[in-house]
Amino acid sequence: MSWDYFVYFAVVALAAWGAGALWAWRGRQVGWVYVFTLSGLAVFLGFILSLWVSLERPPMRTMGETRLWYSFFLPLGGLITYVRWKYKWILSFSFVLSLMFICINLLHPEMHSKTLMPALQSPWFAPHVIVYMFAYAMLGVAAVMAVCLLWLKKGNPGEREMTLCDNLVYVGLAFMTLGMLFGAVWAKEAWGHYWSWDPKETWAVATWFGYLIYVHYRLEVHSDCRKSLIILLVSFALLQMCWYGINYLPSARETSVHTYNLN
């Protein structure tokens, strides 16, 4: 399996996720929502696993490969949210976000390379990336929710919506914490340092603090919903800097050891 076949899997998965989102939007026959969305997830996961086998390494090295996981976890996060709270629009948003990341991968095809540098050959590699990508997806869904509540929904956000944001952030933050700590333990094993304040690590901890501010501010009795959602979006902007923004930041260019793209 190579990237050449990605388009076929992507089209089938997107069609299934789109159908799931449509059924959820209509609010009838909930069973079909699960069937369609899970089928899409199975097809997409099938591609990821086949690529894994074909590359003979976890497909987590390049930006395109991490986008692959993100595209997978977004509908999964959307489905979990739908199962728990039955928001009929959440699957539509996770579908659009996933579509966006899949389109980026289709428009910027990457080289099919099996190589994996020795530093990445570690049992920590797969859990570190998967846990982080799941966290990013959950926090992505929370950011979408924040945009909706701030600018698309009329009136002030309700307690039910804010509780959903809180729970998405709790889950995202829990996984982000695990991802960061897995990375620290791995770095100790590879280089002897838990934390070396590399640009990627600096932005990772700034992002983590951002979400901690949201969590603590929301615990306040007098917390303002709109201000909370702004904090959520600022934190999500920091997350973008950590994920790929540092590749364009002059202060971080050519100084980060966390760059594994193929050039």
């Binding site: 932005w203 700034a206 603090f209 951002g210 901690l212 501010y217 306040e220 971080a252 100084t255």
Partner: peptide, 24 residues
């Protein structure tokens, strides 16, 4: 108390962002 936690986290986040923007 919570306001102190939020304030301290805010300042620490700010100075960490500054660190991320300046080549070390």
């Amino acid at each position: 108390r919570l306001p102190a936690s939020v304030s301290a986290l805010g300042w620490v986040m700010g100075v960490t962002v500054l660190m991320g923007c300046i080549r070390q």
